[in-house]
């Protein structure tokens, strides 16, 4: 394949190319592995949330937590096409990574990990949407990850963005879903871990809940965590979710007061 259009008259690049390997820049692990830099163990990264950036969508939201940047658009509810009659509505979540969103380029149209994230977001959101009110219809949710810093952060932020966009679209929900991730590092619990922190953690957990109702919609745990620490981490995530809920509510209120419909 390579030989057929090999041009001897040009300077050809090497056959393989690799992403550069960066030297670790005074990594936190060198000084004190269990001391977090920049923020406390229970602090989450600052959240910027803006509903309604995508005007053609019924509802949309953009979320940014330091290096995680996600845009989300909601279309619908609209008629399900080519599907047999269903009594309750259908929530369709699709996640796409921009090719430049990660450290290594993500080739477009290879969606193995995308589907895993879409499933996690769907699981977090679906219990909050009143799909029984929308027979024969579909709600399409498109999530675009513009920049990613750890899969856990992406799932948590995407869930918040999707819930905000659903509220922005005026779709009936039981309550806003917010989610928070945590990781177990050296026996301590760090909330909202970044990609580097996840890579040196023993296990991670993502909790999605509806703070208004005090219910948990999804728990997603991996790694190796003793059951006691899991419960502890879930409690810490849930109390942090109450704070995040305020941010989401404020963002929605600020937006709707500027754009009365």
């Amino acid at each position: 394949m390579a030989l057929s259009n090999f041009d001897r008259r040009r300077v050809n690049g090497p056959e393989d190319s690799f992403a550069p390997v960066y030297a670790p820049q005074n990594d936190q692990n060198e000084r004190d592995p269990f001391q977090r830099r920049k923020r406390g163990p229970l602090d989450v990264r600052p959240i910027f949330l803006q509903p309604g950036l995508i005007t053609q969508a019924n509802g949309s939201a953009y979320i940014e937590t330091e290096h995680t940047k996600i845009a989300c658009a909601v279309y619908g509810p609209r008629q399900s096409k080519n599907v047999s009659y269903s009594e309750s509505g259908h929530l369709n979540v699709e996640v796409k990574f921009a090719p430049f969103s990660c450290r290594r380029r993500r080739a477009p149209l290879r969606d193995a990990e995308d589907r895993t994230i879409a499933i996690a977001v769907h699981q977090a959101i679906v219990s909050s949407v009143r799909l029984e009110l929308l027979p024969k219809s579909t709600i399409d949710v498109f999530v675009t990850v513009i920049e990613a810093d750890g899969i856990e952060g992406v799932i948590a932020s995407a869930s918040i963005a999707v819930s905000t966009a659903l509220a922005d679209a005026g779709i009936e929900i039981f309550g806003l879903v917010v989610s928070c991730s945590a990781s177990l590092i050296g026996g301590g619990i760090w909330l909202d871990p970044s990609e580097d922190e996840v890579s040196c953690s023993e296990g991670t957990i993502i909790v999605s809940c509806i703070p208004a109702l005090g219910t948990v919609t999804s728990v997603w745990q991996g790694g190796q965590i003793p059951p006691k620490s899991v419960v502890d981490a879930m409690e810490k995530c849930q109390s942090r979710c109450t704070d995040i809920h305020k941010i989401v509510a404020q963002a929605l209120r600020g937006y709707s007061s500027h754009n009365p419909t």
């Binding site: 699981q123 679906v126 219990s127 296990g203 957990i205 809940c209 509806i210 109702l213 005090g214 219910t215 948990v216 919609t217 999804s218 728990v219 997603w220 745990q221 991996g222 790694g223 190796q224 965590i225 003793p226 059951p227 899991v230 419960v231 879930m234 409690e235 849930q238």
Partner: peptide, 24 residues
């Protein structure tokens, strides 16, 4: 001690944190 290697919720519906604690 025994460790949890993974935990997932599947399907629709809701749970409270206290319920999950008991279920674990």
């Amino acid at each position: 001690e025994p460790t949890l290697q993974a935990m997932r919720t599947l399907g629709t519906g809701e749970l409270s944190l206290a319920q999950i604690k008991d279920l674990i």
